[in-house]
């Protein structure tokens, strides 16, 4: 389990995160939603240690991550996998080397075993025959899937996904959502996803956190996210013509 206790963060005097307390459950898809600029990415970067909080604690399984030494943080980070918004694949390496990177860096096993693991991970994200291709030769959806394969290659306990659906068509988005959800349950890991995608919210949101102006505004799950009285959350969810119409129809019924 990951826990945030009284987390605040500001940049150049502007407060981005205000006194945030959240628990992210193990074995579930935890979704962080909110408008652009609400602090989602800062929150995720604070979670993984790319930003250090001004106040508060980030706990991984009871260990205070932000107060550890760099060496101790590195040990915790070996338990993490992260999917970045643009994939962040290493462009000087082919797909096989990208996925193999975290295994080769920290695990002592034969090349054959590492290759088996790479193929298993690529197979898991439904990618075959791309081992020798370069990241620039792949489509956006394929790159995201490679990023997921790389994130799960070292058997992480914690999986972080920063807007995994951004820039993808709806069908590919659903594929990515299902993939992340399946992996979370199969491996029983703590998954945290930053997203704008309402389809992800209603499909895989087992624990949904709504951030508004840097504050934790609402917390619930996919069953009650559509029926909440929270005005800001409703404004966020039902902002498009389509979702407004669906809401009106549901209200009439």
């Amino acid at each position: 389990m990951i826990e945030l206790v009284n987390i605040s963060k500001s940049f150049e005097g502007k407060q981005i995160l205000k006194d945030i307390n959240i628990k992210f459950a193990k074995g579930k898809c935890n979704l962080i939603i909110g408008q652009s600029g609400s602090g989602k990415t800062v929150l995720m970067k604070t979670l993984v240690g790319l930003h250090s909080p001004d106040t508060g604690e980030v706990l991984f399984g009871g260990r205070i991550f932000n107060k550890m030494t760099i060496e101790q943080q590195i040990d915790v980070r070996k338990e993490m996998g992260m999917v970045f918004q643009a994939g962040a694949l290493f462009d000087s390496m082919n797909i096989e080397e990208n996925v193999m990177f975290p295994i080769r860096m920290f695990q002592k096993s034969s090349r054959g075993k590492m290759l088996d693991k790479v193929n298993l991970c690529l197979d898991r994200v439904n990618l075959k025959g791309v081992n020798k291709m370069m990241p620039s030769e792949l489509s956006g959806g394929m790159r995201k899937r490679v990023a997921i394969a790389r994130a799960i290659a070292a058997d992480p306990k914690y999986l972080f996904c920063d807007e995994p659906n951004s820039g993808l068509d709806p069908q590919t988005s659903i594929l990515i959502d299902d993939l992340i959800s399946d992996i979370t349950h199969e491996l029983n890991i703590t998954t945290i996803i930053n997203t704008h995608d309402m389809n992800s919210v209603v499909e895989i949101g087992e624990n949904i956190i709504y951030l508004h102006q840097g504050q934790l505004w609402w917390q619930g799950d996919k069953k009650n996210v559509l029926n909440t009285d929270n005005k800001e959350l409703n404004d966020f969810i039902f902002c498009t013509a389509l979702t407004k119409k669906i809401k009106e129809n549901n209200d009439k019924k």
Partner: peptide, 17 residues
């Protein structure tokens, strides 16, 4: 280029110095 495309961040999250 590696910094702005978040490749360095990706390595750091994996625990790479």
């Amino acid at each position: 280029s590696q910094r702005i495309s978040e490749q360095i961040d990706a390595m750091e999250v994996m625990g790479v110095n």
